[in-house]
Every structure is written in structure tokens, then in C-alpha cells.
Amino acid sequence: MKQIVGKLLITVFAILTAIVIYFFIYYSNNQDVNDVKVEGYVFGSNDEPLKNVRVTIVNERYENDNGLKNYDEYLGQDKIELITDSTGYYSTLLKKSAYVYILLQKDGYKPIEEKGKQAKKSLFFKTKMH
């Protein structure tokens, strides 16, 4: 009987330890990142730099504008509009970010939505428009 109780206690302890580790990893990965640099280049179908492309950076945050945080869903969102320079380059700095995606538009080209990326200190996009 003592062996069964001992094995049961070890099993329960192992399960509880796994749950604690899971939540620690989940919440340590699901936090806003401060001061995220987003930059990229936009090229045409012949690899020529495209200037005057409207770049909309959509920034999702776990924290809303009033300071409320929820690490299960995005509460805050920012949209930053930029225009590429003569080399097709754009960049901005986001104060807080969890997830970023990019929308690109230029007359004569098909609009593009870049696949989003989890925030880290530096995010780089290289896009080809057709």
C-alpha cells in the first residue's frame, strides 16, 4: 500500500511540476517587447527598389493604451504608415510590441500583406511586389 501511495505522490508531483514549467514558459514568451525596430526593403518584380510604396505597419500589443494587460490576447493595436525612400527602404521604432505584420500598397502593383512576426528587438522584412 505504501508503494502505491508513493508512486501516486511522485506522479502527482511530476504532473504539477510540468504544469508550472508550461505556464512559466508560456508567460515568459507572451510579453510585449520594448523598443522594437521594424525595417525593410521593397523591390519590384525585376529586383529594382520601389520608392513611394505605402507601408502600413500593424503592431499588436498585449497591453492596451490604458495600461491593462492580458497575455492571452492582444488588447492594443497601432497602425503606422510610412513611405519607402528611393532605395525602397522604410523603418520605424515601436515602443511596445508583441506581433507585427506589414501591408504594402503601390499603384500598378498587387497589394501585399507580409506574414506577421513575433516581436523581438529587431524585425526585418524584404518584400517583392508584382
Rank of each mutant, 00 (worst) to 15 (best):
K2R: 10
Q3R: 15
I4R: 13
I4E: 11
I4G: 07
I4D: 11
V5P: 01
G6M: 12
K7F: 07
T11W: 10
L16I: 12
L16V: 11
A18C: 14
A18P: 04
V20S: 14
I21P: 03
I21F: 10
I21V: 15
Y22H: 14
F24D: 11
F24W: 12
F24E: 10
F24A: 13
S28Q: 13
N29R: 13
N30K: 10
Q31A: 10
D32G: 05
N34K: 11
D35H: 11
K37Y: 12
K37F: 04
E39R: 02
E39A: 10
E39G: 00
V42G: 01
N46C: 00
D47K: 04
D47F: 03
D47P: 05
D47N: 09
K51H: 03
N52S: 09
V53Y: 02
V53D: 09
V53T: 06
V55T: 00
V58R: 10
E60M: 14
R61L: 08
R61K: 15
Y62F: 14
E63P: 06
N64P: 08
D65N: 14
D65L: 13
D65F: 13
D65S: 15
N66I: 13
N66R: 14
G67S: 13
G67Q: 04
K69H: 07
K69P: 00
E73V: 15
L75I: 09
G76K: 12
Q77E: 06
I80E: 04
E81A: 09
I83Q: 13
S86Q: 11
S86H: 09
T87M: 11
T87V: 09
G88K: 05
G88W: 07
Y90E: 05
Y90A: 11
S91A: 12
T92A: 06
L93T: 08
L94C: 03
A98C: 06
Y99N: 06
V100P: 01
Y101E: 01
Y101I: 02
I102W: 00
L103E: 14
L103Y: 01
Q105R: 12
K106M: 08
D107T: 12
G108R: 02
P111F: 11
E114I: 00
E114L: 03
G116T: 01
K117Y: 02
K120D: 04
K120R: 10
K121S: 14
K121N: 12
L123F: 05
F124T: 03
F125G: 03
T127D: 08
K128L: 07
K128I: 13
H130N: 14
